[in-house]
Design a protein around this nucleic acid. Structure first.
Lengths: 211, 211
DNA sequence: TAAAATAGCGTACACTTGTACACTGAAATT
DNA sequence: AATTTCAGTGTACAAGTGTACGCTATTTTA
């Protein structure tokens, strides 16, 4: 293991991944990239691509994994900030928007492949978003003392709202961004408030049943 | 006007539109369609395409308009049902899910082009969704006596949640669909509850300020 | 009725695409 | 030291792409 050869192979594999990521933009989706383009950008002959991935789909799924990793880093960063105090919702939204600003193309990848033409891609993206949601769910359950069910519904709704806001953020000017952030925060507050209200009511109901 | 020629032209234009719509599926996005394929499916020579659209983008934007039209029909249908009584939220969600079941490919078009590679497409889809949102906003403002601002935030959040649920519905079995519907309804209730709670508080605040 | 306009066709061309195949040189294994 | 493995190369090909151009047949206009 870890021979000169394996190291070099890993390096060019990385080059392919980076070449693909580098070609992504607002005007260019992963599915519009060609194997030849990516190989060329990585400084490889077209046919050398096959030494690393059996086709573009395999590379694409690797990118989605990579994106999921970035997403988890985001969460960690968010939690660190929250521990230092402040409004949880506000910090989360702001952190997410920062993530999008510096990882726009990775976020675009997730957004696009979530509704893309490959079932495998869609499943991969769903999985990453689900991890994200479940972590938030856990947090809500402990911090806000919610039913598991209500916590999940809230987490799911919140993630949907935030992702959607992120998508909107990609297409607007920086000065409008602030307004979007505030609107999103307010919407998350609606959800949080509604969840705890209705959760409390269910608990009351259950306790009535007990007597 | 209305000469034999114009009528025939409109007819083949329709054939092109229908050919394109007909090729859309879970595995096939609009951007993956080629001019030649669409022309062939419509029973035309490739170059005849240009007699009707200057390129595929122009055809695509026409499809988005068409999709928006279908969306507005959906709203009308929803309103009709609501007038006959019942839970507004429940009826809306169920109607939307029915729409997706019978117009899956049109909905997919909107979903995909919303985050696609053409700024013009994204803008067109945004516009259609905005109409949808504004109509809901109007309704909420009158029916629930909300601030214009709160009503908009609620409408926006609700549309986001419902669209997202629609996207999820496309990829699951029919039996799981019922569960998704119920979860979505619950999430919309969170939002509605939170909005009216926080709206009431703002009104109270404002009235305090007056004294 | 003669002339003009035009929807649709067929050919042609320059590109790009994925990938099969045979080859090379250096690293790994024996 | 001899042999095997294998990442990367270059050539080649069939298939598909958008679209320029000239032609035809029919409708529309003059």
């Amino acid at each position: 293991m870890t021979g000169v050869r394996a190291i070099q192979k890993e390096k060019t594999r990385r080059q392919l991944i980076d070449a693909a990521l580098g070609q992504l933009s607002a005007e260019r989706s992963f599915s519009s990239l060609s194997l030849r383009e990516v190989a060329k950008e990585a400084g490889l002959a077209p046919t050398s691509f096959y030494r690393h991935f059996s086709d573009m789909d395999e590379l694409g799924l690797t990118l989605v994994d990579e994106a999921g990793l970035t997403l988890r880093q985001l969460m960690r960063q968010s939690r660190q900030r929250i521990e230092k105090g402040g409004s949880v919702i506000q910090i989360s939204v702001v952190t997410f928007m920062e993530f999008i600003e510096s990882n726009g193309n990775i976020f675009r990848l997730l957004l696009r492949e979530r509704s893309g033409t490959s079932a495998e891609f869609r499943a991969a993206v769903s999985r990453e978003i689900r991890y994200f949601t479940l972590e938030l769910c856990d947090y809500l359950q402990h911090a806000n003392k919610l039913t598991a069910e209500v916590a999940y519904l809230q987490a799911n709704a919140a993630v949907t709202i935030v992702f959607n806001a992120g998508a909107d953020a990609l297409d607007i000017e920086k000065k409008e961004r602030q307004q979007l952030v505030e609107a999103t925060i307010q919407q998350l507050r609606f959800i949080a408030r509604g969840a705890s209200e209705l959760s409390a009511r269910v608990k009351q109901q259950n306790s009535d049943d007990d007597h």
